[in-house]
Design a protein around this nucleic acid. Structure first.
Lengths: 222, 222
DNA sequence: CATCCATGTTGACAGCGACAACATGCAATG
DNA sequence: CATTGCATGTTGTCGCTGTCAACATGGATG
């Protein structure tokens, strides 16, 4: 959405095989991705049609096939964009938070939930039932992997002695399940009572993150 | 799936307006629901077609419209069946668990995750992005509401003094988020490393439930 | 036995995903 | 600058789908 802009025009095509979209339309590939997201936002998944996406991008119904093998490939691009954006938002919020491991973990979790609330189409495509083939490895590599960020927070907290020791993946899975569940419930409109805005989601995420850290059981005497 | 069987045949149609399916086919309405679930399981959501569902039920392509207003109405029936089945499985597992509030809560959570793992199509339809209109109230009323079961467990635990006091809905949301997130991650194949079987899911759900109760932070001295 | 109406069928239409054949225009090459 | 190649976009087509209207059928009711 923000990190777009035209690419360098003097580059050889063989240098950047992924960004080959600047001929007639300018950047049809990205325009199609954006149109798909807008369409899902406005009309829902049932209205997501390759032909309508093409219409909104101002091209004919077969033009998308020059950039995507099929409808699913377009959704894969949406998912990849989503994974990148989510990881970036998490990193940004963590940078603004205090340096402590618990604060970093909380920031990561809140950012995870907030991304889902602010970008429901991306979140749903990323984790929804829309893919028949597994997502390309690029969608889960280092720079775009939110899970890796959680793992690092957890291990830092264990190293600092503020988190329960043991297999870090267990703790990570607990944190991931919590924020993913909260995000899913928001996106799937199961939490209407709690309010729909990003502020409500943020407040809820903060509270729930703390609950996860401290546990549901009654705190010991003292 | 199991609780089917032909309904009483001597009943007046006006007495049971919901179960009006036993004329030519016998019970086409339920057969269509079952065929839809099977089709999703075998071929994925992309292959879910009213015409294919009709084919598998042995009727022509327009027959489903005598039982469902449109494709979405068929999915609504799948979701309702799912909500009922999930609540029932949770009740059954809670009945087999010890009577303590924590044990009951754990049983409810584990059953929630297990339902999702064992019935992915139902779970995805129930919480997925497939509906343009909100689910019928029947899908979220008493007998079919898993959330209500969680609330009762939480409040019982608070009354017994073993759970943190305060707004019960906050604790309930934490528990719901955890199990819903775990279930979603399983169903959406984000947890391949942890194994795919129901046993792996059950073990993981038990561990994660305990982690939620006790918290991620290091237990105090003593 | 006669009738009615819920249930199932047939036929049709517009829209969709996907492919093949064709048209266009940038850009590298001379 | 003119030529040419190939990435990009267009047109036309196919089978399939969701949905509707008109029609056929046969159990239940009298």
């Amino acid at each position: 959405m923000a990190t777009r802009g035209k690419q360098a025009r003097t580059q050889k095509p063989s240098d950047a095989p992924e960004e080959k979209a600047r001929y007639h339309h300018g950047d049809l590939r990205q325009a199609l991705v954006d149109a798909a997201v807008t369409l899902i936002t406005e009309e829902g998944f049932g209205a997501l049609t390759l032909r309508e996406v093409a219409r909104r991008a101002g091209v004919t119904h077969a033009a998308p096939y020059r950039h995507f093998a099929d409808k699913e490939a377009l959704l894969e691009a949406v998912a990849q964009q989503g994974f990148r954006a989510m990881a970036q938002e998490m990193r940004e919020r963590m940078a603004k938070a205090p340096a402590g491991p618990l604060e970093q973990l909380s920031a990561a979790g809140v950012a995870y939930v907030l991304f889902a609330v602010r970008h429901p189409p991306h979140f749903r495509v990323m984790f929804g039932p829309h893919f028949t083939r597994p997502l390309q490895p690029d969608a889960s590599d280092e720079g775009t992997n939110a899970f890796a960020l959680l793992v690092r927070c957890i291990e830092a907290g264990q190293a600092a002695g503020v988190l329960r020791p043991g297999e870090s993946r267990r703790l990570t899975l607990a944190a991931w399940s919590m924020v993913h569940g909260l995000a899913s419930l928001f996106v799937d409109r199961q939490l209407q009572e709690a309010g729909q805005g990003a502020e409500a989601a943020e407040a809820l995420a903060v509270v729930q993150t703390r609950l996860l850290l401290e546990g549901l059981t009654r705190p010991g005497p003292g």
